[in-house]
């Protein structure tokens, strides 16, 4: 069980480490970059711009909550299976 705690702490640290440079360079969406095909555009900067940005954060939050639920459940399954394997090996 102790190993799992270390894994969680390590995962959180790496997560913060990986995201910190990315978050520092989050594009302001003021200038569109030009490429062919799936080109990028600046988001709508009209009256709905702010609400669209907040909608994006809401969707992100919902997806993150779903992800946390799935991750927690999968982790619980992992621990349960490990415990059962140990129990069967010992018996």
């Amino acid at each position: 069980m102790k190993n799992y705690r270390y894994i969680i702490i390590l995962a959180l640290l790496v997560f913060i480490f990986l995201l910190s440079p990315v978050m520092a360079t989050v594009p302001s969406h003021d200038t569109p970059s030009v490429t062919s095909g799936m080109e990028t555009v600046s988001p709508v900067l009209d009256g709905n711009g702010a609400s669209r940005e907040s909608a994006l954060y809401t969707v992100l939050a919902v997806v993150m909550v779903i992800w946390l639920g799935i991750a927690a459940y999968v982790f619980y399954l992992h621990i349960t299976i490990s415990r059962l394997e140990k129990k069967i090996d010992e018996s």
């Binding site: 990315v22 555009v41 988001p43 954060y57 992800w67």
Partner: peptide, 13 residues
């Protein structure tokens, strides 16, 4: 990380 990149870092098409 992928979720955050998809919503906050990647530009819209």
């Amino acid at each position: 990380v992928s979720i955050v990149l998809a919503f906050l870092w990647a530009p819209p098409a």
